[in-house]
């Protein structure tokens, strides 16, 4: 273990890398989607340009907006940064990893969502309320599924700390775990629902009546909107990194040497790039579900996670 100061500095750097590369991931998804739809794609860096443009723009607020509306972008981004800080991206065993375990991580996401949903209701328009109501419906069904997946992980590794759990998985080598197959599938579905991708929400839509995430942030503009967009990009990154690191932990640095760290960056980059291609392929083949099919979708996710847990208990523990 390196000197604590170096470790903290590394942790800070990793967090910065995490939040700085989130727009890149979003840009990459757009690219892949465009290619799959036979369209010319914007640059991978387009999300950065969009953010830059929004940061420079003036804020226009609704007359009814309260302080809660104005502070929500900061809170949402803050929770996302905090969540990003505790996820091992390039290396495990950083001091920040111990601040919060994966249940707290879910709590951070819930905190951000709580404020986001409140902000949707603050102006008092029907679109915002609609978005909030739908978001909370999706979230309240996705959260148990997510925790169920987390339980399987933490029961396998007997730890809820992500870093420890990943370290354990790395140590135990390549083991075919039926539990993880189900859990991975379940967690993917949760991630799709939580990050507002198709078939749950259409990130590209601007039809007021069908929106979920966009409905809540309809009244935001300028830097507020930039913060919200950035936060949602970080959220997408969080889920992608979680899936990549839990189910394919190989490549992540376990020592703080320069080589290991560089390899860690390369590995996570490659994993995320591939994962996103998979996501885009899934998205392209699907229409958005009818709103009340979403619970069925999430039930299935929950069931998969439950099956993962059961097969862990039945097939893996009892030996």
């Amino acid at each position: 273990m390196a000197h604590p100061l170096i470790a903290w500095a590394l942790a800070l750097l990793q967090t910065l890398l995490f939040i700085a590369s989130a727009p890149l991931l979003a840009g990459w998804i757009k690219c892949v989607r465009c290619v799959l739809q036979n369209r010319a794609s914007p640059s991978v860096l387009q999300p950065y340009r969009d953010l830059g443009k929004l940061f420079r723009k003036k804020v226009v607020l609704a007359e009814e907006a309260s302080w809660l509306f104005r502070s929500t972008p900061y809170i949402v981004l803050g929770t996302m940064i905090l969540a990003a800080a505790v996820i091992p991206l390039v290396t495990v065993r950083l001091p920040t990893d111990a601040i919060a375990d994966v249940i707290v991580l879910v709590g951070f996401l819930a905190l951000g969502r709580f404020f986001l949903a409140l902000a949707g209701l603050d102006i008092g328009t029907s679109f915002g309320g609609m978005g909030s109501s739908r978001e909370m419906m999706v979230a309240s069904l996705a959260e148990p599924a997510m925790l169920m997946a987390v339980f399987t992980l933490s029961m396998t590794a007997s730890s809820t700390n992500l870093s420890t759990a990943m370290h354990y998985l790395l140590q135990s080598g390549l083991v075919l775990r039926p539990a993880f197959v189900f859990t991975a599938a379940g967690l993917m579905m949760v991630a799709i629902a939580e990050t507002g991708r198709l078939p749950v929400d259409n990130p590209a839509t601007h039809l007021e009546l069908t929106m979920i995430h966009e409905g809540m942030i309809l009244e935001y503009s300028g830097r507020h909107l930039a913060l919200m967009e950035w936060a949602s990009e970080i959220k997408l990154m969080i889920y992608a990194v979680l899936i990549a690191d839990i189910f394919l932990p190989w490549g992540i640095a376990t020592r703080f040497t320069a080589w290991a760290l560089v390899m860690g960056v390369v590995a996570i980059g490659a994993k995320l790039a591939l994962l996103v291609v998979l996501l885009a392929v899934i998205e392209s083949g699907l229409a958005k579900m009818r709103l009340f099919r979403v619970p069925e979708f999430l039930n299935l996710a929950f069931l998969l996670c439950l099956l993962g847990l059961l097969s862990h208990i039945i097939l893996e523990v009892g030996i």
């Binding site: 075919l176 539990a179 998969l304 097939l315």
Partner: peptide, 13 residues
Amino acid sequence: TQAIRMLAALVLF
């Protein structure tokens, strides 16, 4: 054993 378990899990699925 791993493979059998995996198959068992898949059949259950």
